Simulated assay, not measured.
Amino acid sequence: MQFAESPVTHPRGADPRGANWTAKLRAVGLRTTTQRLAVLAFLDHNPHSDADTIFRGVRDVLPTVSVQAIHGIVNDLSAAQIIRRVNLADSSSAQYETRTKDNHHHVQCIRCGRIEDVDCTVGHAPCLTPSNTHGMRIIETDLTFRGLCTDCEREEK
């Protein structure tokens, strides 16, 4: 499959392109479809993409796919925890990524909106301990660092 977007290198050799998506889909009771595999392949190379970006990225190989179908696919895949839905305060829509279950965080440029992964600072989940858990057992931490990327900072000068 060829996609318009460029491949992305993942930290610490965690390259999800080697994942067996067919086995993962079947393990959670989802059928392996061309559309699901195309979405997963696109997200491997383009993490933090929203549904519209995924749609534009896969429509060359799936010309009959609709935006509604993409929304349904990402909802199914995120519900099955095959992909992760990322909701950031300064983003107009949810983004999706294939990097799941490792409790990583994100850094987001406040000007251009670029999002990058930040590995857990301690190395085990959760990375942070709240001052008051209100009686809850903490399972994960969702933290977003916000700043200016080097490109946007250069433009400011």
Rank of each mutant, 00 (worst) to 15 (best):
I115K: 08
C120I: 06
H71Y: 15
P130Q: 13
A89E: 15
C109F: 11
F145W: 14
T33Q: 04
F42V: 04
T100L: 07
R56V: 07
R85M: 08
D90N: 13
V65Q: 01
P126G: 11
R85L: 12
L25A: 00
A14T: 07
T133Q: 13
T34L: 11
Q81M: 07
L77E: 12
A19R: 11
R137K: 12
S66V: 10
H10C: 08
L62G: 10
M136I: 00
P47H: 07
V28I: 07
G123P: 12
E140I: 05
G18S: 13
A69D: 08
V74E: 03
I83N: 12
I110C: 07
R59V: 14
Q81F: 03
T9Y: 02
S131D: 14
D76L: 04
H45Q: 15
L128Q: 13
R56M: 13
L128F: 15
P47F: 01
A79F: 12
P126F: 09
D44C: 15
L88C: 09
C120M: 11
V65D: 00
R99P: 00
T22W: 01
N103E: 14
T100I: 14
C127N: 10
S66L: 13
A125L: 11
H10Y: 15
L62N: 11
N132P: 03
E140T: 09
H48S: 09
L37T: 09
D15Q: 10
Q68W: 01
Q68F: 02
D142F: 13
Q81C: 01
V86Q: 03
P47T: 07
Y96S: 01
R36L: 02
H45W: 07
H134I: 06
Q81D: 05
V107N: 01
I73L: 00
G123S: 09
G13M: 09
D50W: 04
I70P: 00
T98M: 04
D50N: 15
T98Y: 03
T141Q: 10
A80K: 06
D76A: 13
R84V: 02
